[in-house]
Design a protein around this nucleic acid. Sequence first.
DNA 1: GAGTTTGAAACT
DNA 2: CAGTTTCAAACTC
Length: 715
Amino acid sequence: MGGGVEISEKGKNNVEDIEVMDTPERSKNRQIATPISKFEESPVFNFLNSLSPIRPIKSIHISQSINPLSFASLGSVFTSPHVTSVRESRFLQRHQLSDPSKPEFSTDDQTTVDPENKNTVNVTVQSDEQKENVDQRESDGEPSYDCSKFVVDFPEDYECNSPKSSIKAQEMAGYAGNSSELVPFVVQDCETNMEGVIHHADQNNEGPSCDWDNFLIFESPVVDGREENMYTQPGDGTEITDNAGEKTDYEHLSGLYRGMRRRCLVFEMGGARRKHLDESSGSGSDASVLLQSDDNNTSSNDHKLLKTTKLPGIGLHLNALAATPKEYKIVNPQDSSTSRRLLIRPSSSVDFHTSNPGQELLNNSGPVALSLEGETDSAQNAVVGNVANEEINPSSPKKKRRKVEQAGEGDSCKRCNCKKSKCLKLYCECFAAGVYCVEPCACIDCFNKPIHEDTVLATRKQIESRNPLAFAPKVIKGPDSVVEIGEDPSKTPASARHKRGCNCKKSGCLKKYCECYQGGVGCSINCRCEGCKNAFGRKDGSCAIGHEAEAEEDEVEMNEKSMLDRNFHKNGIENDHETNMDPTGLPITPLRAARQSIQLPLSSNKKPPRSSFPSIGSSSGFNARQAAFGGPNFLPPPPKFSKQLEMVREDEMPEFLQDGSSSSPIRGIKLSSPNRKRVSPARSSSVETSTGGLRSSRKLILQSIPSFPSLTNNQ
DNA sequence: GAGTTTGAAACT
DNA sequence: CAGTTTCAAACTC
């Protein structure tokens, strides 16, 4: 991408430049949000405000803001996966953060994590809050991107943004449509944040610097002259290096800064990075080493960042998410578990998952993150080395799995036991989830590893050719769980649905055999199940829990579908949101990484769900569900599919953009015949996805529709 | 831990 | 498209 180039060019630019680089979301939010200032005064707003550590300076558009996020960058989404990735990252971040259960959140001393958490305080409120934060940031001139998380915590303390930012943000709104442009922006946002911080530090060595020190725990050996050299880029370096005398203090900052920027870069520019990685020689054994070797500042930056954050899973993938609290603290970059990468192709479409800066920050597996896109040979090798264990030691898969489960790892971490499929079929959870198999896996003859990237990608393509939505999330969650904040929490969110529906005959949709149940969603008319007793909602519309919502949803869904169709005809864009999947097949893996979970209601399982989702991704949906099921204690097994829910839409969008004709919303709409045995994935999925999105945010959708025109216009 | 059940995925 | 087979997870003992 040109993003890299732009970045370097703009590197000099300080806050101002960065500020200028408004994120697409931001711009959109701004556009959409402005009218919504009225929400500030709403009780909900107040509530959220109370929850949020950050003081809302600007009006917060709760409901609408959500839309922007979810739909937000239609243009961007369509245009570039990168942009979406960023957005996705937000979602991920939110979810992760949102989960209260996680130790991370609970601990105050978490230097790196907590800050972020602050950013995304409550899951239920998350989107709103985030928006608030975003708004604030916008108002403050702070970049809204995930990469800016660091800054986010310190918004007040570190107000590096120049007033110009707000003004420029508007200007930037025009960019929303252009992905290529957006990417750089994102990167810059990251940089900007950091720069802003740095500037601030320069100006005020005192306060902020101290905080940063605490915040930034740079373990990385990398902080040395060499690194300095590596990182010094035009502009960036200047700021950091300018204060030679104070260099010591800034090293951390610079490292962080660099790391952030790199992260952005990395995610944004998978291809470039990949190249670099390939070039990098190899000390492949250690991912961190690889990173360092990486020619771009980015790699080293990430490395630093990763180390700095010390949170596992920075790259965030499923692995990262899966990491147990312990793992988080003990982050071992080399640990294969952490090193799992999404099976994303270097291509843009894939980048989504990589782009979860937020998560990355949260989760430390920096090297992992790199590996995601990188797939560099060396990187691969490094990863491979880690992964090799899996292949070599397939023994006691269940044991491992259980162990992991017990450890509290969530869905985010897939662990398969494939023996015959070579982990190249959808039978393999890892493969299906778009992630490489990792150590915990007990698979045999596994080809789902970075080493076999080509094979994996080829296989993926093949499968996708067969079923474009094969890798799409099976359960579709509402555009934003937050959406339903206003609704009665006791009701089942019903924001999620299984795209294709299940075909259960004996399990009564009460066991994890049922994808719907596993995904924590109710069965719908799309299901061909027999004797459905799904606790989340029965096919017939009755729902053991929150059936009201369920039934309501169905109705709404139908209405929505019709609405959507109409709207689609008009705009032709909306679908994109909901429909994901890159035709190329590059998944949305990143999204999957998110694997937010909607937790199952009391699962019959005594054991923790195989892929028990750590509480990381508690989504609003989850919360609602939780409430519905009886509160915090209720921890249903994490849905296997929910993982990808949030990001899905965005991911899917590109495809539609590319091929709008192929999946017309209309076509999809009438997918569901109750009795149909199998729904053609493409249709059903597209439709369902759209509907799913609608459901979750049906109210929003209606609202959001109007906003689209503006977005498109910008483009 | 081994074996069974289940339903999705894959195949025909 | 329907039926069958394969597969691996979920589950039971």
